[in-house]
Design a protein around this nucleic acid. Structure first.
Lengths: 182, 182
DNA sequence: CCAGCGTACTGGACAGTGTACAGTTCGTCC
DNA sequence: GGACGAACTGTACACTGTCCAGTACGCTGG
């Protein structure tokens, strides 16, 4: 989206993030460079650095933003079903954005506001299963780790089909929840 | 290790891999480039391509090579203890090579010969717990995914200490094994 | 012993990357 | 209206993985 020169671009952190989302959606992670995002905005690559500290910071923002598509489980639903539903929804979401998965595991990306909200909702459900607050952090981590891990496995175009790994995850989630509740 | 010019370097796939190991040990993953490996061997960067297809292929080899340090569990030991021991040893190994963890999850790296051997030993132990062969593949995947996932979490210099995450992993492994054996 | 062949290797280059530095242009506030 | 600070540009650096063309060497058949 090039501008007529001589005018301000009027960028902002949000605009940069939005452009990054567009570029990522259209060209995937390999196509996401500072230059491509800047090009999308019709702006010099360096201009982004007025609104974003790093490429890393931009990617972190992008990661948390993806989680906005996930609806937190209702506190009133059946806890076991609710937990399974969020994690499977997460798995499905990551299946659509395969190359992001390693990033979630390697970075602070899983610590943004959206991620926090999901975690808090999970703690509520676990409490209704009799898991006290001290232990629930551990269980949440176990659930998330399994979900991200299986998503990563599914992303690596493994010989195992996506459906098989989804079923694996479902079984694993049950083992963890059941084990933790005992 | 520069050579006196005019002589053959006498490279080989193994020599390249060894140099890559050295560079990685000294400078970590960011310092591992085709140029740095070539420099280590006193050779032009392109020379490596006579022995290695890609940087990806080289990294894959490096990944599996790291697993050589892991002793497969004895088939005669207590199955639960044996499984726990391998996975915790893996966690500890990965803790020492933090930046590799995302790669293990994202690539075929966990499918090399060493990885296979470990997987096979785990299947044997699971059989002694009454897990039939069809189901054991799923359990092995669950155990590996949890281990790699927690290692990744520990690698991301999280606020949670390494010891805490190791304990989390230990509990998770137990839940999975117990759940699968039931 | 020597010609020839194939492989190992070099030099140079290309197309990218993230990002720093210096300078210009603009909107805003006193 | 003039100064200030932020936004933005142009240019550049130091890298990256990898390709192409050429050279020099070791080994093998005659």
């Amino acid at each position: 989206m090039p501008r007529t020169p001589g005018q301000r671009a009027g960028l902002s952190r949000e605009a940069v993030l939005a452009a990054a989302k567009t570029v990522f959606a259209e060209r995937g992670l390999p196509g996401l460079s500072m230059r491509s995002v800047a090009g999308e905005l019709g702006v010099a690559p360096n201009a982004l650095y007025s609104h974003v500290a790093d490429k890393d910071a931009l990617v972190d923002a992008l990661l948390d933003d993806q989680l906005a598509a996930l609806a937190p489980p209702s506190p009133d639903a059946d806890p076991v079903a609710g937990l399974r539903a969020v994690m499977l929804a997460t798995f499905d979401l990551l299946g659509r954005h395969a190359d992001l998965v390693p990033l979630y595991l390697a970075r602070q990306g899983a610590r943004g506001p959206h991620a926090r909200a999901l975690g808090a909702a999970m703690v509520v459900l676990l409490a209704r299963l009799g898991v006290d607050e001290a232990a629930s952090a551990r269980v949440v981590r176990a659930l998330i780790v399994s979900t991200l891990g299986f998503a990563a496995l599914a992303a690596a175009d493994a010989p195992l089909g996506n459906a098989e790994l989804r079923a694996d995850l479902e079984a694993t989630l049950d083992w963890i929840v059941r084990g933790a509740a005992a």
